[in-house]
Nucleic acid binder design. Structure first.
Lengths: 132, 132
DNA sequence: CGCCTCCTCCTACACCTGTAGTAATGCTAC
DNA sequence: GTAGCATTACTACAGGTGTAGGAGGAGGCG
């Protein structure tokens, strides 16, 4: 397995989301994408954030072209998974089940979603029976 | 419905957890409880944190007794629920289902936990059928 | 050819966080 | 009653975060 994803601040995460959406892009592109999500930021602010992200290895920069092209260094999936792990550890003391129970009981999920999750659970259980 | 729970920093949350465990207690008590969890902090550090928590209304202070007695202003349940909500919104764009799916597929949960969750889901679905 | 515009680089800066020291004050024990 | 110890109040401070301005280069337009 590869190097750990670096920690991201909330603002940085928002930038990453824009980048994941775009695939890759210039500062202006990212700024535009953030704009469509209601995050109006000055050009230089976006630059600063992308710079910090590059500094911690969360994005790759292609400097052979101007304007520079930024690209996520890790896939969204992976970063979110890691955030989730941390969150479960820090807030729910590692009790993932109690987190899920809370969501289930909290009306946060629609009937559809519940059904979908149930299906996945059954699948997961079946998988584990076979290959423990 | 009551006033929103204030935002807590990671260090503050750790203090709150100690306080929830104790029910209520002095600075020294909280410090001790944190100690048993491997969070060794100077007395004054704990004071600072409790002071900040009091400042943002997360704990109540009884100053009629010395040493002052600190007590959580909100129940654990409630604070965790709110944190979870924020997390789902900020990191998973509000898609609680995709968060849960990730946990289910991620081997993060034991067979037991999966079964438990499944049961809760069935219950929740049944509840909703009756009272939509 | 000189200016405007876009872009990058460096700098700034106020606020938040984690962590703790020092001063003051009051109670306890000799 | 005086020297400690516990406790609180005030202060500190380095590092992180969110947000952005200004300087300077490079290319397009009049």
């Amino acid at each position: 397995m590869a190097s750990r994803c670096p920690d991201l601040t909330p603002a940085e995460l928002r930038v990453m989301k824009a980048l994941w959406q775009l695939g890759r892009g210039s500062v202006a592109d990212v700024r535009g994408e953030l704009g469509t999500r209601g995050q109006e930021l000055a050009y230089t602010t976006v630059m600063t954030l992308l710079g910090r992200l590059a500094g911690k290895g969360a994005v790759m920069v292609d400097r052979t072209r101007e304007p520079f092209v930024y690209k996520p260094a890790h896939r969204r999936e992976r970063v979110l998974r890691e955030r989730l792990r941390e969150f479960v550890r820090d807030v729910f003391d590692g009790r993932a089940d109690s987190l899920v129970l809370r969501l289930v009981e909290d009306e946060t999920l629609t009937r559809e979603e519940l059904r979908e999750i149930e299906k996945k659970i059954v699948e997961a259980e079946r998988r584990r029976e076979k290959k423990p």
